[in-house]
């Protein structure tokens, strides 16, 4: 077999992900995490009726990130991730997981050069792309608003 035939043969015969079961797992775990977020929002709203919605969402995010980090620290989040895949990656708790896990992993190389400098090896792209995109949107918005 030459290279082309081989890579075709490999991609044809390689075991595939089980679409239905992984999608179902992602669906219910992801949905559940969002429901937990909603219940936190509703609780805070009931307790502090005068606070504006945006601030309540900020508190909700804070609590969700706390939960994600805690589960990562206890060694539970990677088990959820193994089962749920996208269901636990995409919610904000997955972002917390991708910050906490390298921090824990690389602390053996020291606090400064391990923990602190490698904290964003996985989540870095999220911050960079998010900020770059938002600045671009802001500049476009400014230019449009001039006319």
């Amino acid at each position: 077999m030459n290279k082309k035939e081989y890579s075709e043969y490999v991609s044809k015969t390689a075991p595939k992900s089980k679409h239905l079961s992984t999608m179902f797992a992602a669906f219910w775990v992801g949905g559940l995490i969002c429901c937990i977020g909603q219940s936190i929002f509703d609780t805070i709203q009931a307790l502090l009726p005068l606070v504006p919605d945006d601030d309540i969402w900020a508190i909700t995010t804070l609590v969700m990130i706390f939960l994600g980090s805690t589960l990562t620290a206890l060694g539970v989040y990677d088990k959820i991730g193994r089962y749920a895949g996208g269901g636990s990656i995409i919610p904000i708790t997955g972002f917390a997981n991708s910050v906490t896990s390298p921090a824990m992993e690389y602390k053996r190389e020291g606090i400064i050069f391990g923990l602190m400098s490698k904290m964003f090896v996985i989540a870095g792209p999220i911050i960079v792309s998010g900020i770059a995109a938002s600045v671009a949107v802001g500049i476009c918005y400014y230019i449009v608003s001039l006319f």
């Binding site: 390689a14 075991p15 595939k16 992900s17 089980k18 992984t22 990562t72 620290a73 060694g75 989040y77 990677d78 088990k79 959820i80 991730g81 193994r82 749920a84 895949g85 636990s88 990656i89 997955g94 997981n97 991708s98 906490t100 896990s101 390298p102 824990m104 992993e105 690389y106 996985i122």
Partner: peptide, 16 residues
Amino acid sequence: RQYRYPLELGTQPTPT
């Protein structure tokens, strides 16, 4: 940790 990800990162292994 050397070839893939931190141990605690919640990723799903591919079927191969």
